[in-house]
Amino acid sequence: MDIRNRIAKRVAAYFKSGDVVNLGIGMPSLCPAYSDPGVMFHTENGLIGVGPLSTGLRQVESFTNASGQQFLPLSGASAFDSAESFAIVRSGRLAATVLGALQVAENGDLANWARPGKMVGMGGAMDLVTGAPKVIIAMELCARGGEKKILKACTFPLTGRACVDHIVTEQGVIDVTARGLVLTDIVDGVTPQDIARQIEPELIVADDLRIMEA
C-alpha cells in the first residue's frame, strides 16, 4: 500500500457504523474505501451521504463535494444549505473530521490554512476543528524538505487551539493527551527513537504500542 492509502486506512479504523464524518480534501478523501459501510460522509457545502465519485453520464452538477468533484449520493442522503451544514458541524453532530496539517503543536494546536504571507482562506477548517468532537490529522510526519511539522508551538497562523486528537502519519500514530504526545501505533521497521528524532516535543511511548499496517 502506498503512503497515502496506508494513512487513510488507519484513519478509517477510528470510524464506526452510524458515525457522520467530514473529510478534508486530498489524502482524507481516500478514507471511504476503508471505512465501515455504515459510516456516512458529510460535505460542508451541504449534504450527508456522499458516495463514490461519479463518471460519464452519471455525473451531475448538483452532487459535488468540497473539492467540486461530482459524486453519487447514497441511499439515505440529505441535502441542506451551507448554514445548516455548519450548524451540524458546530453543534457536535459529526463524529470526527479528518484534515491535513502544516504544523501541529504538543498541546494540540493546529495550523493548516496559511503560511506566513501566503493566505488563500481557511474555508470550513476553523468551524470543523471547533465543532467536531474528534479531530484527526492525516499527514506525512515531516514536510517535503524534511522540516519538522510536529512542534512545541506552531509558528504558522492557527486554525484552532488545542483541538487535535490523533495524528496519523506514514510512520505511526501519535495521540495528543493531557500528559503529552503519545505514540500509539508504529510501522514495522521504524523505532520510537526514529519518530522522536523527527518531532520537536518529547514523545511518550504507549505501553500497548501497536503495529500499524504498512
Binding site: E44, S82, A83, F86, R90, G123, G124, M126, D127, T130
Partner: peptide, 22 residues
C-alpha cells in the same frame, strides 16, 4: 470562516444584529 460567513449572511437576511460563535 465558512460557517461564520454563512451565519453572517443568515443574520443579514433575518433582521438580526449578529451571531456568537466559538
Amino acid at each position: 470562516p465558512q460557517g461564520s460567513l454563512m451565519e453572517r449572511l443568515r443574520c443579514g437576511g433575518s433582521g438580526l444584529g449578529g451571531v456568537l460563535t466559538k
